[in-house]
């Protein structure tokens, strides 16, 4: 087994997902099986291939440096869970500055 419970805990932590001990067990087994399946790719010979980052044959797409209208502030803040003085308001992030 390549995937350990610690790995799942770590990844869940990165994604800010809380997990119970039972869930950890469950996902550890599942992810391990998924990865094992994907690892079949490792048997392929890809020595002559360039790593692919984009599947579409498209490159050099630019826009000109022109200012376009922004959204009205009322629209911008419409879905904000909390706001004040046209600023988004969030839980305090740094304990001390």
């Amino acid at each position: 087994m390549a995937i350990t419970k610690d790995t799942i805990k770590y990844v869940a932590g990165l994604a800010r997902i809380g997990m119970t001990g039972k869930e950890l067990e469950h996902f550890t087994g599942q992810l391990d099986r998924i990865l094992e399946y994907v690892h079949e790719l490792k048997d392929l010979n890809v020595s002559g291939l360039e790593p692919t980052s984009h599947v579409m044959e498209m490159k050099n797409v630019y826009r000109a440096d022109r200012v376009r209208p922004s959204l009205p502030v009322s629209e911008v803040l419409k879905n904000a869970p909390d706001k004040a003085n046209n600023l988004f308001k969030v839980k305090k992030i740094i304990e001390k500055i």
Binding site: R63, D65, R66, V67, R68, P69, S70, L71, V73, V76, L77, N85, N86, L87, F88
Partner: peptide, 27 residues
């Protein structure tokens, strides 16, 4: 020193009122 942002057309002007230079891309 560009006129517009790097991936969208919002202005890069400094000191504008909060959240007035935003759009779906930079939000």
């Amino acid at each position: 020193k560009t006129k517009s942002k790097v991936f969208c057309g919002c202005s890069t002007n400094f000191g504008s009122p909060p959240n007035t230079q935003t759009c779906p891309v930079c939000l």
